[in-house]
Design a protein around this nucleic acid. Structure first.
Lengths: 128, 128
DNA sequence: ATGATAGTGATAGTGATTATCATTCGATAT
DNA sequence: ATATCGAATGATAATCACTATCACTATCAT
């Protein structure tokens, strides 16, 4: 049975208070700034535990995992290859098509991840 | 300017001769088996170069990159969380919806990756 | 209180990938 | 054919995100 300890509560609060997509280092650093010092291993374990419990969401980028609030409607991500910004979008029709594919293939979907890579509005305008 | 050296040609041939999704170690090992010994760094650089030139395709999984032939129609992947097998599927309708999203958001798509995680037919049947 | 169970944190270890650097290759220019 | 010079190679060290270890602590049920 998973426990919601003071450390995990602090991590959860941190994430719930913003719309950022956090990595482990950022969480540890920001907590330290607030005087809450948590071992980096505890941050990794906390993030994994919270995600497993569905209290936060995770996305796997090429280099690292990032975590965000779970109290939003399901969405996927637009990742800017120039500035690294991450936007969100909802497109339920895509999910429907995914379920169709799974059924055709007799595949039991547990989860999915859709990332669109490219240039965000700002970077596109700035020619970068 | 990128060069298509003997080593890169060997990597490319290896990948083009099968429908597998290769990681760097597998490529190095299989080449060694054939008497072609290539430094592991060269394999990594070769795979990256070939992918950049569009001669092979890459997919980023949670732990590592895998590479496959590029001479097939575009497709996305079903990844079995039990046995690790990777199946492919085509669903052009999904791509159309992705383009719609990008246009709405003024986002310039350079690429995308859609992974469906779950149990493949075999693992589902085997209750694992 | 007591034991079982889970969590913590410092730190060592892991595994994929990248950087370094001396050497070699290969596509032009001669 | 040969010189040239940027790119590639390969052995190895380094990096970086993450996980395992382990002694210790907190929490919960009895």
């Amino acid at each position: 049975m998973q426990k919601l300890t003071a450390q995990r509560q602090a991590i959860l609060d941190m994430i719930n208070r913003s719309d950022k997509h956090w990595d482990a280092d950022e969480v540890a650093y920001k907590l330290k700034e607030q005087g809450i010092s948590i071992g980096i291993a505890t941050v990794y374990r906390g993030l994994a535990a919270l995600a497993e419990q569905g209290l936060i969401e995770s996305i796997q980028l090429a280099d690292k995992k990032r975590y965000e609030r779970a109290d939003k409607a399901h969405h996927d991500h637009l990742v800017c290859t120039s500035c690294g910004s991450i936007e969100e979008f909802c497109k339920p029709e895509i999910e429907v098509l995914q379920d169709q594919v799974a059924e055709e293939r007799d595949f039991h979907i547990q989860g999915h991840q859709l990332l669109l890579f490219g240039l965000c509005k700002a970077c596109k305008a700035g020619e970068r």
